[in-house]
Each structure stands twice: as structure tokens, then as C-alpha cells.
């Protein structure tokens, strides 16, 4: 299998934060959601992939090549959407295009113009008059206009209202569904990913909690509800995180089969969504 991205034992130290030996891989042509609460290390990973910050140890390979040694070649193939695109606000979109286009060998003005029309973006209006949603659309148009094989998006939907977020995601994935592009999509809004991601990597406090296909994650995880008398030192080991109140307990498991075997019909097993997983794993890490 060919991989768009292979991250291996990646570490980065900051004062008060450490990205700790992070490893995961994204096969070519798939969409991976990088999820985690604010400050978990998602942006650090993306900055490390883009060589914006320097790693302390580990390796990053993009399309099988080291991201430092083959930086230019790799960046030619990456479309990058940053949570804050940092465009010059006193310029208009046409001027931004004129600045960025010459850096890419495969820049395609026709694709750019089509996207600008589709996103209904004005070419001659200064970016400071753009709403946040329009800026993000502009960033996506720029990222998709040089026939990038790998799209990296860091929190592209943060700060957008739910309706606009949905519209933006629909547009984006509608554009990409017929193309064999690999996508790494970082977000703390997990509902954005549940519809579209093939793989999910969950990072919390600088460590990978899990990285797997979405289907396997959804299959293995479940919310368990039952009487609180069922909880003891032995049974706690079946759960990744737990909430107990007067009514009973609610917990997350990553091993549904074992829970079924142990508790039988004495508990209710519900589907867990990514937000539940984030909540309970975060709670578990806090308790540890």
C-alpha cells in the first residue's frame, strides 16, 4: 500500500507541552480526520508536516519521501489550508492569486477561476472586507488550484456557523469525491468528520489515543449504560472513561464484544459518536 503520509515516533518539545512519539499513517486517496480538543497537538503535527516548526525526533514521510530532504517537491504536491490563512488583508483575491500562482509549477488559472465562481467570491474586493467563511473559501480555492495530491486542512471550519460549515464541507467534498486526493483534516468539531472521513486519528495531550479506520473505530467503540452497582475495580478495566451519577453509570468501551460477554443484558449498549469518544478518553487521561 502506498502512503500519502507516514508519521513515525514524532516528538516536539515546547515549554509546558510535549508532542510525544506520535505515529500514524494515511494511505493514498483517503481522508483522515485528525481530532482532539484544543491544545491537543493537532496544529503542531500539521506545522511539523509543513516544516513550519522543527521536530525534536522521529520522521515524517510524504509520498514515501522525507519531508525535510524533499521539501520543495513535497510542497508542490500539497494544498495547505491553515486555520488562519494569513493573506494580506489589504490585497484582493486577484492580487493574492498573482502572488501565489508563480510558486507552483502546476498552477491552473482555469481551476482557480472555476472555484472562485463556484464559491461566489469577488476577485476585486479587498480581503479585509471578506467574512471568515469567504476567507476560508478563498484559501480552499488557492489550495486546490495547483492540482495538489494531498490536501492538509487545519481547522478550516472553526469559527464558522453550523450552516455555513455544512455548506463549505459539502462543497469541498463534492469537489474532491471524484478525484484520488488524500486529505488530512484537523478539527475539534467531530461531526464534520463523521460523514466524510475514512480514517480517524485522535490525539490528546500530545499523545495518540487511537488511529484507525472510521468503521473499525465505530464498530469497536460503544456507550454502555447500566446500574452503578455493576461498577467495581475489576469491571472498571472494561471502560475507557466513565460518568457515574445517582441514576447509574455511562461509560465508553473500545471492546464491545468483551463487554457483551461480561455484562450480557444487564447493560444498554448504544452507538458512540466521535464526540463521546473524545469526551471519555479525555476524562480517562485526566484521571490517569
Amino acid at each position: 500500500m502506498n502512503y500519502a503520509l507516514e508519521v513515525n515516533e514524532l516528538s516536539k518539545n515546547y515549554e509546558g507541552f510535549r508532542l510525544d512519539k506520535v505515529s500514524f499513517a494515511l494511505p493514498e486517496g483517503f481522508i483522515m480526520g485528525l481530532i482532539g480538543p484544543n491544545g491537543a497537538g493537532k496544529t503542531t503535527i500539521i506545522k511539523l508536516i509543513m516544516n513550519l516548526v522543527m521536530k525534536n525526533s522521529g520522521s515524517i514521510k510524504v509520498f514515501g519521501k522525507d519531508n525535510r530532504e524533499h521539501e520543495i517537491e513535497i510542497k508542490e504536491r500539497i494544498g495547505f489550508v491553515y486555520d488562519n490563512p494569513n493573506y494580506y488583508e489589504h490585497l484582493n483575491l486577484q492580487q493574492i492569486r498573482n502572488i501565489i500562482a508563480p510558486f507552483y509549477k502546476r498552477w491552473d488559472n482555469k481551476v482557480f477561476d472555476d472555484l472562485v465562481t463556484r464559491f461566489e467570491l469577488p476577485l476585486k474586493k479587498n480581503l479585509k472586507k471578506f467574512s471568515r467563511g469567504m476567507v476560508m473559501k478563498a484559501a480552499i480555492a488557492v489550495a486546490l488550484s495547483h492540482h495538489a495530491d494531498f490536501i492538509i486542512m487545519d481547522e478550516p471550519t472553526s469559527g464558522l456557523d453550523p450552516l455555513f460549515r455544512r455548506e463549505l464541507l459539502d462543497l469541498l467534498f463534492d469537489l474532491l469525491q471524484n478525484e484520488k486526493k488524500s486529505i488530512l483534516f484537523s478539527t475539534h468539531i467531530t461531526s464534520d468528520l463523521e460523514r466524510v472521513a475514512d480514517y480517524i486519528t485522535f490525539i490528546n495531550k500530545g499523545k495518540i489515543v487511537f488511529s484507525n479506520t472510521k468503521d473499525e473505530i465505530m464498530e469497536n467503540h460503544a456507550l454502555i449504560k447500566g446500574d452503578k452497582n455493576l461498577i467495581n475495580i475489576e469491571t472498571k478495566g472494561y471502560f475507557e472513561g466513565m460518568r457515574i451519577n445517582e441514576m447509574g453509570f455511562e461509560a465508553l468501551t473500545s471492546d464491545v464484544k468483551s463487554v457483551k460477554k461480561k455484562f450480557g443484558n444487564s447493560v444498554i449498549i448504544d452507538k458512540a459518536n466521535l464526540e463521546d469518544m473524545m469526551y471519555f478518553y479525555n476524562q480517562k487521561q485526566n484521571n490517569d
Binding site: M50, I72, K75, E76, Y82, P85, N86, E89, I100, F103
Partner: peptide, 14 residues
């Protein structure tokens, strides 16, 4: 002020 350093460092340029 524009933080455009990051923008250029993410382009294919050394």
C-alpha cells in the same frame, strides 16, 4: 503583522 511568514514558508520554496 500579517503573519505572512507562515504563508510563504508553506509554499514550495526553500
Amino acid at each position: 503583522h500579517t503573519n505572512s511568514e507562515i504563508l510563504y514558508a508553506s509554499l514550495p520554496v526553500e
